[in-house]
Amino acid sequence: MNCLELRRMAMLDPRQLGEAAMEHAEQCDACREFLSRTFQFETELAQTLRVPVPDGARGRAVRGAASPTSARQPRWMALAAGLLLAVALGVALVWPRNDPMALAGIDFVVFEEAQAILDAKPVEPEVLRRVVAQLGITLPDQLGEVRYTGVCPFAGGFAHHLVVKTAMGKVTILLMPDRRIDVRVVAAARGLAAIVTPVAGGSVAIVAGSQPSVARAEMILTSS
């Protein structure tokens, strides 16, 4: 081995120098000096590269990787799951939920209205006009033909019960002068749609066979 070969080998990997290289270094002062500096440099290099490992990093790595659930799912799955959850929450918030009071209106129409018509005492037109005025609504002819008026128990109190034949079918209206609510609520069940809407002097429940029919009646009642 000559000086050039030794230096080439030393620059490639000083740890892999063979017997021949060491024998040459023993006889060559310059190469011995070169190897001495090379080994010193390698020691410094190895020491510099040995940066400290953060405390607990190894434990965190094992716990994170080898959990029984077989570690992490791909990031896009987490993203998709998050997106789905956000959409579901949004839909749940925006989607109209059946309000108990509006549902009670539907149940009244389905289960009690017929009996109420048979049992209830008709309301005097004067009384009805006063109630309508108190509520701050109108009952124009445009709404339809009022076929029945009466007073009946509803939702823990009493309501003035009207059955109206409209262009869009039968509509039941429950006038509740002393029942105040904060927001308009809706429900749809048993093939019927219902709303309970706040008005000036109380609230009004409207139940009909379809949402447009309910909406039309509400618009006419509250358009005064």
Binding site: L49, P54, A57, R60, G64, A65, A71, R72
Partner: peptide
């Protein structure tokens, strides 16, 4: 990983991801 990333946090993250992959 540290000498590739030149940052301790990123190095730990890279090794963590790599070990998760190795486990799988």
């Amino acid at each position: 990983a540290y000498w590739l990333c030149r940052n301790h946090w990123q190095a730990e993250d890279v090794v963590q991801e790599a070990l998760s992959r190795a486990w799988r």
